[in-house]
Amino acid sequence: MRREIVLKIQRQERPGAPAAWQEFRLPYRPRLNLIACLQEIARRPVDAAGRAVTPIAYESACLEEVCGSCSMRVNGVPMQACSTLVDNLPDGTITLEPLSKFPLVRDLIVDRTPMFEGLKRVRGWIPIEGTYDLGPAPRRAPAEQGEAYDYSRCMTCGCCMEACPNFSGHAPERFVGPAPLGQAYYFLLNPTGRMEEGERLEALMGRGGITACGNAQNCAAVCPKEIPLTDAIARLNRQVNRRWLARLFGG
C-alpha cells in the first residue's frame, strides 16, 4: 500500500533546452488519477526537496479519455493521464515523461502535428460537401457499422504512434504510423469513403506508407480505446496488394 505518491517528472523548458528530472511528493488519496496529481502540484508547485519550481506544463481537456490530449509516458509506457489511476500502477515512484516521438513543446506537452499530417496524407476524411445537395448516405449493413464503430473511437492521442518502433514524428516520411492507417481503413469501410478508394490506397502505397509497418504490434497493445489497429493494417495489406497485383498483371 502506498502512503504517499512519489512522482518523478521530466522537465524541459522549451525545445532544445536540457531535460531534467524533478521529484514531487503528494499525500496518498484513493482513486486519484494522474491529471488530479498534476493539478495538485499546480496548486502548490514545490518539489520533494522543498524548492519552489515552475508549475508543470501538461495538456488535458476532457478528463474522460475522449479528447486524447493528455497522452504521456507513464513508467515508460504511453497512456492517458486522465484515465490512469494511481491505484492501478505498481507501488513505488511513478515516472512521467512526454511522448518521445513528437517534437517537444514544454515539459509534458508535445506537438502532435506529425500525426495530423499523416491523417492528411492518407486522406483521413470523407468528402461530404459539394456545390449541390449530395443526398443521403447509402445504407450500411449493421455488421459493417459494428466494425467501423471500433475505429471511430480513435481520439488521435498518439499512444500507438509512440509505441511503434518504426514511427518517428522526427522523421515522419519513414512511416506514417498506425493511427492514420487505422483511420484510412475506417474511411475505406464507409460506403462514401470507398468512392475514394483509389486515391486512398495509392497514398498508402507510397514511401513510408503501409509497407513500412514491421508487425511489432505494439500499437494495438497500448491503444487506450482498444482499437484493433493490427487488424486494420492486415486488411489494408490485402487491399493494397490486390491493387498492386491488378496493376502489375492487368492495367
Binding site: 518502433p165 511489432a216 504490434q217 505494439n218
Partner: peptide
Amino acid sequence: ALPLRQNALFT
C-alpha cells in the same frame, strides 16, 4: 519500455 511478445519477435 514495452516488453511484449510480438515486440520481442520484431526485434
